[in-house]
Design a binder for these strands. Structure first.
Lengths: 164, 164
DNA sequence: ACACCTTAGTTCGAATTTGAACAACAGGGT
DNA sequence: ACCCTGTTGTTCAAATTCGAACTAAGGTGT
């Protein structure tokens, strides 16, 4: 932290663009999902992640990682969605501590119902705004960014157990 | 919503990349700011926005727009920061209803203190990960995305008053 | 001056999120 | 078999967020 290397104009534009776009997009998605499907974006993501896996069920920790949320946050949401009948908890045979979150028939139904409107909004706010070239570079760039951050988190966690 | 145009592989990569990167970056920023400056990202952004304007003060609504947050959310945060001495409320001369949020000396100090570490993290998670070309395209892309969303929000607001 | 519609900020209650603390279990090495 | 360390998911309190309702002004047209 000796001499901070401040951001030049172009770097600042990229950073501000990223932060502002994230917030605006999140706000729009939240509003659209709530209005047309009665779901929060978090809940929708839970449905998506579960539906994307062969048997429609994932371990809590695994699911929390994919959602990029805290374990306690997931516990809360799964409880809510369980009350709403979209998800069911199932215990794990090989590990007594383990809990699977599993999509119910109702969960599939809600997802099928919500997906078209969500995808349309995603196109509207991001995908259809950009050219193919821009999309390609965006995917590549943010994929790399994500990979590095995941790796960094793993490193912190490994050291973090006993703090050195 | 007739026939949903699903996302192809490349579009999906861009979208997932965006969502995942947003969450990971936000988590990292939050952690870094809390640890090294005792600030939330929201609070840091308030300091930044106020510092970026000539007299270090903005109307509440204006500030809320720049932060992409709700008015009530801003009221809460400004109250917190006022208690912490980083910000001061000042009433507006030309409009009795108006309220300015103004950076205090302490606010400037906190910002100067926090900025280097924040910028370093921003470089670490995004800027220094990408090439110049990628940065240029990212800024351009997300700038356009933001502009369109802002415009869409304005249109909704104008119609929204009496709901057509 | 008087209705009328919009705007500015705050207040309120409800929903969500997080990290720390916790209890129970898994796994490995001795 | 046993101790030690790391995991798993939940609980808890505290902080934050949002939208709707509300108060108080602005601004406009008549």
């Amino acid at each position: 932290m000796d001499k901070p290397r401040w951001l030049d104009e172009q770097e600042m534009a990229a950073w501000r663009g990223f932060v502002v776009a994230s917030n605006l997009i999140e706000r729009r998605l939240e509003q659209q999902l709530k209005e047309n499907a009665g779901l929060s974006h978090t809940q929708y993501e839970i449905l998506v992640q579960l539906s994307a896996v062969p048997d429609g069920s994932l371990r809590m920790t695994d699911l929390a990682d994919r959602l990029v949320t805290s374990k306690s946050g997931l516990t809360y949401q799964v409880t809510q969605m369980e009350k709403a009948g979209m998800v069911r908890r199932r215990s794990c045979a090989s590990d007594v501590r383990g809990v699977f979150a599993e999509l119910t028939e109702e969960g599939w139904r809600v997802l099928r119902e919500a997906a078209p409107g969500h995808v349309a909004t995603v196109r509207e706010v991001l995908i259809d705004v950009l050219s193919r070239e821009q999309l390609a570079m965006l995917g590549e760039s943010l994929g790399e960014v994500s990979d590095r951050l995941r790796a960094a988190e793993r490193r912190s966690a490994e050291r973090g157990g006993a703090e050195r």
